[in-house]
Structures are given as structure tokens and as C-alpha cells.
Simulated scan of single mutants.
Amino acid sequence: MKSETQINTDAGIRILKVDSCPSLTGKSTLTYHIGCNAESEIQIRVHANTGGGYFSKEWIAFGVIQQVLEKQPKDKPFSSLILRQLFTGKSSNTPAFLLAALKHEGLIKDGEKSGYQCSDIARFVAEIKSLMNDKPETATKKSSKTHRAS
């Protein structure tokens, strides 16, 4: 397996973390990347799917995702449809796949009766900023328990 902590020259993104998680339905396993651009803005993308569903591999700025999540009423559960606006004209699977990655990262949790609710955004941002401050070799070692090449 080769290290994924590198600069993605296509988008100028430094990949900080590679992880995998089940899709929301549990029918496939998703691999996702978390990275940062030259301005130290956190980026995230779905990279692979063991199932047959199509999806977009584009990087999405976490700041935009955070804005969408923070607009959700705290007392009302939401679904992946809230993320659809981030992928206009793209596969309908991508918002649900991204939501699965966000759930795996602890940014959202299951709602009390249905849907999902926001969780600990500050913890996630602190963890990723810590990885940004490390040299690529150190970041790879720090995230080795979740680091997986696809």
C-alpha cells in the first residue's frame, strides 16, 4: 500500500486523511479523503465505492458543508437531501455518500427517532487542523489506524 498523504496536483489538495466507512444503507464500503488546499481550508471528497453506485469525486470545501449543517434546526432531524445543493447536476448518490463520511467522522449522529442531527464539529476541525500542522510523514503516522490506501 502506498501513502496517500500527498499533494493532489489536479486540485492542489494535500490529502491529510484517508478512511473508509459503510454507506448509510450498509450495502457498500466508501473510501473518502480529507485534505486541505494552499489556504489551509479543509476539503473532503468521496473517493471510492465498493458498490455499483455512481458518485462525484469532486472536492467540497468543509466550510460550505459546515454552513449547511449549522443551518439545520437542532430539534429537527435531516437527511442527505440537505447536501444535494453542493452537487448540482451530479449523481444523486453523492450527498448520501458524503453524509456517511460525515457520520463516520462524528460530525453528525443518528436522530432520536429518524434522520440525522449535527454533532461535534469543533472536535473534527481541531483534529484536521492538527494534521495540517504536521509534516506529511507525521500526519500519515498519526492517522495510521484510519489511513487506508484504496
Rank of each mutant, 00 (worst) to 15 (best):
K57W: 06
Q67H: 09
Q67L: 10
D75E: 06
S80I: 03
A61F: 10
V46P: 00
L69E: 03
L86F: 10
Q117S: 11
A126F: 11
Y54C: 08
T50M: 03
K57N: 09
Q72T: 15
L69N: 08
K71D: 12
K109V: 09
T50R: 00
Q72L: 12
L98D: 01
S91E: 05
R123E: 11
D120A: 14
A100H: 00
S92V: 11
Q85L: 09
F124D: 03
E58C: 07
F97W: 00
G106N: 12
F124P: 03
F55L: 02
W59N: 09
H104P: 03
T88H: 08
K71E: 13
R45D: 02
A100L: 03
I60P: 02
D110E: 09
A126S: 15
I60E: 05
E105R: 14
F97I: 00
G52M: 04
T50E: 01
I44A: 03
C118S: 10
L99P: 02
T50Y: 00
N133T: 10
F55T: 01
L86N: 05
K109T: 07
H104F: 13
Y54R: 15
I121N: 02
K71N: 14
I108T: 15
Q117G: 11
H104K: 12
S130M: 07
Y116D: 08
P77N: 11
T94F: 01
M132K: 07
S56M: 11
N133C: 13
H104A: 14
K57I: 07
G51D: 00
K71T: 11
R84C: 06
L107C: 10
C118D: 03
S114G: 09
L86D: 08
I128D: 01
P73H: 12
Q85T: 14
I82A: 04
G51Y: 00
D120K: 15
P77V: 08
L99V: 05
V68I: 15
A61D: 05
S80D: 13
V125E: 14
I108C: 15
G63N: 12
P77I: 06
I60V: 14
E70V: 07
K57P: 05
G89K: 13
I128L: 04
I60A: 04
L81K: 15
Q67A: 09
W59D: 10
S114K: 15
S92L: 10
Y54N: 11
L98Q: 04
L98R: 00
V125K: 14
Q66R: 14
L81H: 13
L69R: 04
R45T: 05
S79L: 04
T50L: 02
L81P: 01
Y116S: 13
L102F: 13
S91A: 12
F55W: 02
A122E: 12
A122T: 14
D120P: 05
W59R: 11
E127V: 13
E58L: 09
I60D: 01
R45L: 07
K109F: 07
E127G: 06
S80K: 06
